[in-house]
Amino acid sequence: MQASLAEAESLVLKAAVGAGLEPGLASLSARATRWLCQYGLPGTRLVVRALTNWLERRSVGVKWTEERKLCAVTENQMVSVLYAGAVVIDHRSLVRAPMTVTSPDEPLLLLAMVAHAMGDGSVKVAWSDSSGTRQGLQVDNDGCTFLGVGNCPLHRPGTLDLCLTCDWNPPAITGSVLWNDAALVHRQESVYKNGVGIEQAELLFLHQWGAKTLIPDSDISREKGAGAGRIDTD
């Protein structure tokens, strides 16, 4: 389905709340999804995977293991970015050095969450060229910068505020975006023109969980709940 950015955000918000995520975290995921989608990135796919991981307990919340290092609250599981994103954002001005998140389940979604939360209108997808200088997702304010340049996937210490370390290979969709997608910046206009593509399986997932925020119809609800008669006309 071709959807608007607002629909993508709204679908994710409802599904996340329906799945049991706290509203503040759900809205963070929803806005990050929209942020990705506006650059033609598959935000809904990433959030569906993140929600599935969390619902199936493959990914869990985070704890500090040492200063500036976050890992899963349960050993041998991935960090759910649905939680890690909020923690990184909330601690960004407290931890005045790079934070490390160990094995986030959806690194690209995590980056989008942080990038969006930092955003004051100057957040950009920076992609100068394919050979060196500025690739990846970058936030150009307050020195918050996330780059995908380097040989070690998702890990580049140094000037970054956030390091992501993974003991698994990122899925192709994440890797390709982080390392080698020169067309990224050109997709935004296409999204505005054509909308956001959401695959059927993702849509089904989002609708199914989103439906859990709705209350089944009943006679009393239909008659009294809206403050107007069943037939309201003049």
Binding site: L214, I215, D217, S221
Partner: peptide, 13 residues
């Protein structure tokens, strides 16, 4: 306050 399954109409219960 809630949304009904019936066309997501906002309602008060």
């Amino acid at each position: 306050w809630y949304y009904s399954e019936d066309k997501m109409e906002p309602r008060l219960g």
